[in-house]
């Protein structure tokens, strides 16, 4: 019920912005589209963060790296394996597989031993694990940028765009795929965790392991399931996002994605999967509209007209941090979360 209201309110707000900005080429409409497109990735990563939080009550700092690792795997298979020509549709599952393997390895090495430790211990451990992964990426692949192709090319052979143009912004096919995948996953996972037996059981584990043991569900199995799924989501995010970011470098999914994703998860409520979806979209829009506002609105100081973004450098970053702080200080359970 509340979910519906919150989602409805957000949609209404965005619609309002779109209506107000209609017809104005320099207006915010294109930026709303950009916000949704970019926010979809934040949402996808946030889904993984929320899942881990529901299952292990910890913030997983390595969530981004599941994605980078998957992207590197696809890269290796498609670009560096010369003897056989591996098509995208075969390399992609391989990438996801490697990501899941990493997630399970992390679960076994780091999460399980610390199952009953204070959560900040586990937090530091996830940070260390993320750094370890990035370090290994650097050693294996060197810091130089690499290229990964998108699933569907942005332009066809003659250079015409393959995507859809909305409000004067061309949405390339990969972006549409990302938004679609996010929506689908949010619905599927949401359904899974609230309506199916297994899903409910997994949730129960996190709330009360003792009771779960009474019922007979293995703590370890659910832990593996959660981390494997989170790694799958992370891997998917990486494979989908890297091609449209221009280049693949070590730590690609952590720098620039993880903090907004965390903010999205916190905003949506760390225990709500639909919240992650919503939070991602909202944060994407906040970031993008902040860019637009910074460029459009000006202040006149000493007779010099300056756009906002030269007065407050890094306005989008500041906007995201403000959202994070506001949520944490005012309503830590976020929009759709259920606990303080």
């Amino acid at each position: 019920m509340r979910t519906g209201i919150v989602i409805g309110a957000t949609v209404a707000l965005l619609a309002l912005v779109l209506i107000l900005g209609a017809g104005d080429d320099g207006g915010p409409n294109a930026y709303v589209v950009i916000g949704i497109a970019t926010g979809a990735i934040y949402g996808l990563v946030a889904l993984g963060l929320v899942l881990v939080y529901k299952g292990s009550r910890v913030f997983n700092f390595a969530q981004g790296e599941f994605g980078t690792v998957a992207a590197f795997t696809v890269f290796v298979l498609m670009e560096q394996v010369r003897s056989v020509d591996i098509p995208y549709w075969a390399a992609l599952p391989a990438g996801l597989l490697v990501a899941v393997a990493l997630g399970l390895a992390m679960e076994r090495v780091v999460v399980r031993p610390l199952m009953n430790s204070p959560r900040i211990t586990l937090l530091v451990a996830t940070i260390a694990f993320a750094l370890l992964t990035v370090g290994v990426e650097i050693v294996l692949f060197l810091p130089e940028a690499k290229v990964l192709e998108p699933l569907i090319a942005a332009t066809d052979a003659s250079g015409n765009p393959n995507g859809v143009e909305i409000f004067n912004y061309i949405l390339e096919p990969q972006n549409i795929i990302i938004v679609g995948v996010l929506a689908l996953l949010a619905v599927v996972l949401g359904y899974f965790f609230s309506k199916t037996d297994l899903g409910l059981a997994v949730l129960a584990t996190s709330q009360d392991s003792f009771a779960t043991r009474v019922v007979g569900i293995g703590v370890e199995r659910t832990s593996r399931f959660i981390w494997g799924t989170a790694a799958f989501l992370g891997g998917l995010a990486g494979i989908l996002y890297v091609p449209i970011s221009g280049s693949l470098t070590p730590g690609a999914m952590t720098s620039g994605i993880l903090i907004p994703a965390f903010t999205a998860a916190v905003l949506g409520g760390m225990t709500s999967l639909p919240g992650a979806f919503l939070g991602g979209i909202v944060i994407g829009c906040v970031q993008s509209l902040a860019n637009w506002a910074g460029n459009t609105y000006t202040l006149t100081i000493d007779d010099v007209v300056k756009p906002l973004q030269s007065i407050i450098p890094g306005l989008p970053d500041v906007a995201i941090i403000i959202v994070l702080l506001l949520v944490l200080l005012i309503r830590p359970q976020g929009l759709l979360g259920s606990e303080a």
């Binding site: 294109a30 950009i34 990735i41 004067n168 993008s288 637009w292 450098p313 989008p316």
Partner: peptide, 24 residues
């Protein structure tokens, strides 16, 4: 058009900047 971006800029900024330049 004199556009400054923070050194930690990411894809969102890249997209926004392109949109601004294209529109202008």
């Amino acid at each position: 058009y004199d556009r400054r971006v923070s050194k930690g800029a990411g894809t969102s900024e890249a997209r926004s900047v392109v949109q601004e330049m294209k529109t202008a």
